[in-house]
C-alpha cells in the first residue's frame, strides 16, 4: 500500500524532463494541427508561397510553355486547314476590302493635294470639268477606278414596312424582311435622334451605301456599292423621281387599293437594269 505513492514519486522525478518535453511536443503538435486545419492560419502560411509560385509561373510562362503552345497551334492549323480558311476568309476579305477603300480614300486626298499644286494646263482642264460637274477633282478621277453600282432597290410602304416592289441583281436575302428591318431602323433613328421633321437619308456599311428617298406614303431604299460620287447620286435622284412620278403614282390609283408588286418590280427593272452601264 505504501509502496505505490513512493514509486510514483520516483517515477515523477525520473521522468519529469520527459514529461516536460512531451508536453511541449504535444503543444507544438496541437499548434501545428491548428495551423493545418484552420483555413485562415494555413492561408497565412501558404499564401506567400503560392504567390511566389504564381509570380514565377507568370514570369516564366512563355519560356516554359511557349514552344509547346506554338507547336500545338501550328499542328492544329496544319491538320485543319480547311476549317481555318473557312473561318478566316470572310474576315480577311472584309479587312482587305476596307483596307483598299481606305487606301483609295488616302490616295484620293493625295491627288487632291497635288492637283492644288499643279498649275499645268491639264490640271486646269480637270479642275474646270470638276467645277462644271460639281464634283471634287479627286472624286472625278477616282470614280473612274471603282464604279458605283446599284445592287438592290426596295420600294417600301411607310409605317407598315411592307414591300411594294423591288429590284435586285443577286437576290440573296429575304426582301420582305429587309424591307421591314429598314423601316424599323429608319423609324428608330428618326424617333431617337431627329425629334423633328428630319428623316434618315442614308446608311453606310462596309463598302455599301443605302440611299433613302422618302415620299409621302412610301420610301425608296437604294443599295449601292463602290465609290458613290455626286454625279451618280444626282442620276439616282432624277431617275428615282421620274420613276416615282410615272410608275408609283399610276400603280396607286385609288387610295386604299392594293399596289401591284409585280408591276412595280417589272418597271424597276426597266428603269434600273442598265443604270450602271451608262457612260457618265
Amino acid at each position: 500500500m505504501e509502496k505505490k505513492p513512493l514509486f510514483d514519486k520516483l517515477r515523477t522525478i525520473l521522468l519529469e524532463q520527459d514529461w516536460e518535453e512531451r508536453k511541449e511536443l504535444a503543444e507544438k503538435l496541437e499548434d501545428l494541427d491548428d495551423q493545418l486545419n484552420s483555413r485562415d492560419r494555413l492561408e497565412e502560411k501558404v499564401q506567400p508561397i503560392l504567390q511566389d509560385q504564381q509570380e514565377h509561373f507568370k514570369n516564366n510562362f512563355p519560356k516554359l510553355f511557349g514552344p509547346q503552345i506554338t507547336e500545338t497551334i501550328s499542328k492544329q492549323i496544319k491538320d485543319s486547314q480547311d476549317e481555318v480558311v473557312e473561318a478566316l476568309y470572310p474576315i480577311i476579305g472584309r479587312m482587305i476590302k476596307k483596307y483598299i477603300a481606305s487606301e483609295i480614300q488616302k490616295l484620293s486626298e493625295k491627288v487632291d493635294a497635288q492637283m492644288e499644286l499643279a498649275f499645268s494646263w491639264e490640271g486646269w482642264k480637270v479642275r474646270i470639268k470638276a467645277w462644271i460637274s460639281g464634283t471634287p477633282q479627286s472624286e472625278a478621277m477616282m470614280s473612274q477606278l471603282i464604279d458605283p453600282k446599284i445592287e438592290e432597290i426596295f420600294i417600301i410602304e411607310k409605317n407598315s414596312g411592307l414591300l411594294m416592289g423591288s429590284f435586285s441583281k443577286n437576290q440573296t436575302v429575304d426582301q420582305d424582311m429587309i424591307a421591314g428591318m429598314l423601316t424599323a431602323i429608319k423609324a428608330f433613328v428618326e424617333d431617337a435622334f431627329a425629334g423633328g421633321e428630319q428623316e434618315l437619308d442614308s446608311i453606310d456599311y462596309d463598302n455599301f451605301k443605302i440611299v433613302v428617298k422618302s415620299f409621302n406614303s412610301f420610301f425608296i431604299a437604294i443599295v449601292a456599292s463602290g465609290g458613290m460620287n455626286a454625279a451618280f447620286k444626282d442620276r439616282i435622284d432624277s431617275t428615282v423621281l421620274e420613276f416615282a412620278d410615272k410608275v408609283l403614282r399610276k400603280a396607286r390609283k385609288g387610295d386604299d387599293e392594293e399596289v401591284d408588286q409585280k408591276q412595280i418590280s417589272g418597271s424597276l427593272e426597266e428603269y434600273f437594269n442598265d443604270f450602271d452601264n451608262v457612260d457618265q
Binding site: 407598315s160 414596312g161 420582305d176 424591307a179 424599323a184
Partner: peptide, 23 residues
C-alpha cells in the same frame, strides 16, 4: 410580316412608328 417588339409594361413607351401601319 411579324414584328416582335421589345416588351414594355406600358405600350405608350413603345415607339409608335413600330406599331403604326400594323394590320
Amino acid at each position: 410580316i411579324i414584328w416582335d417588339i421589345a416588351g414594355e409594361t406600358e405600350q405608350n413607351k413603345v415607339p409608335a412608328s413600330y406599331q403604326l401601319g400594323a394590320h
